[in-house]
Simulated assay, not measured.
Amino acid sequence: MSSEKKSIKEYKPMIAMAGIIIIVQLVALLLATPMVAEDMMAFEDPDSASNSILYIIAILIFTFLLLMAMKRGMQWIIQLTILLAVSATMYYVFYALLSLTEMSIMTNNAVSVTIALILTGLLYKFPEWYVINTIGLIIGAGASAIFGISLSIIPVVVLLALLAIYDAIAVYKTKHMIDLAEGVMDLRLPILFVMPKHLKYSFIRDSFKKEEGEEREAFFMGLGDAIMPTILVVSANIFLTDTYRIGGFINIPALGAMIGTIAGFAVLTILVMKGKPQAGLPFLNGGVILGYIAGVLIGGTPLY
């Protein structure tokens, strides 16, 4: 096998990971309209930058509680909390989708709860990588849509900038994000995407404990790396209402934000392929913000 072919093969999982990000963004855009119609906004005032601060504080508190639970050997609390959050997010996603039908509110509630519980049960009993990825796509798109319709452009940009700084500190300086990721991986929960290097890979059987120099059998990307930039994509498409929409679906600033996300991911991929853990949000959030600005300039629309 030539070195060129080997190089292409090595990059295939990362290309697939980029595809997952794009799918999350497209599904989030589809969910945004019915979620607005169903008044699923997380914040009352989408223009308030204080919402971004509250979001950051919530993340810090949640991270601290997760780390404390891990140190005390209380993994069941982490698992229960995340499974409840996953189930609730999936309920909102399916409720929003089914609201597009002529189904009654009572029937919609019953069906949405049933689907959410079935998928959560499947996740608990059989957390294989394709189950993790499928449910990750659903909750990733759902969370992105909810916060995208809840925060206008400026609060989102503030949020993404602060999160990029926090992620860099948590990965490169304190390294607690790496410890958290490794601890939670053992619980097989959909807080990350898993892309195997070969089809025989099993996420359930993976011990995640590798000797120094030994390669992992799969690539992993935190769910937040897909959610955070997608919030700006959705926000741009929802709050810039007077801009030209391609095919009536997406405006140019939102499309620019999508392209910027993938450009940031491409840079991140090059560094990850060198074998060292990287903070994803500085690249992804930076890419989506620059892409959004480029889309604004190209489309001739207001910045916010």
Rank of each mutant, 00 (worst) to 15 (best):
N285Y: 14
F220W: 00
G224V: 10
K276D: 10
D242N: 13
I238T: 15
T230I: 01
K274C: 05
G256E: 09
Y292V: 07
P277H: 15
F219P: 02
G280V: 00
G222H: 03
L281G: 02
Y244W: 15
L290H: 01
A236K: 01
F203V: 05
V267N: 04
L240I: 12
G287S: 10
E211L: 12
G222N: 02
F203C: 05
K274Y: 00
K276L: 04
A257D: 12
A263R: 07
A218H: 05
I231T: 03
G286D: 03
L268G: 04
E217V: 12
F239V: 12
F220D: 00
F208W: 00
I289K: 10
I231N: 05
N285I: 08
G247F: 01
D206Y: 14
P282T: 06
I259M: 14
Y244V: 14
I204S: 15
A218S: 08
M228G: 07
G260M: 05
F283G: 00
A254Y: 04
V288I: 12
R205I: 08
I246Q: 11
N285G: 10
P253W: 01
F208D: 02
G291S: 07
G287A: 06
A294C: 04
P253I: 06
A266K: 13
A226F: 00
I238H: 14
I293P: 05
A236V: 01
E212I: 15
F220E: 03
T230C: 07
E211P: 06
L240M: 14
A236L: 07
F249L: 00
G256Q: 11
G247C: 02
R245S: 11
I246R: 08
R216P: 02
S235F: 13
G286S: 04
R205H: 05
I246V: 11
E211R: 13
L268D: 02
G291Y: 09
L284I: 06
A263D: 06
T243L: 10
M258N: 06
L223A: 08
G222K: 04
E211M: 12
G247R: 03
F249W: 02
V296M: 12
T241S: 15
D225S: 03
I259L: 14
L223Q: 10
L223T: 12
L223Y: 11
G260P: 03
L255Y: 04
E214Y: 07
F220R: 00
N237Y: 08
E212N: 15
G275L: 03
I227V: 09
L223I: 12
F220K: 01
A266H: 11
N237D: 09
G224A: 10
D242L: 10
P277D: 15
F249T: 01
G248K: 02
T261S: 08
P282H: 00
F203M: 03
R245I: 00
I227F: 02
P277Q: 15
G248S: 11
N285K: 11
T230K: 01
F219E: 07
G247S: 04
D242M: 09
G287T: 06
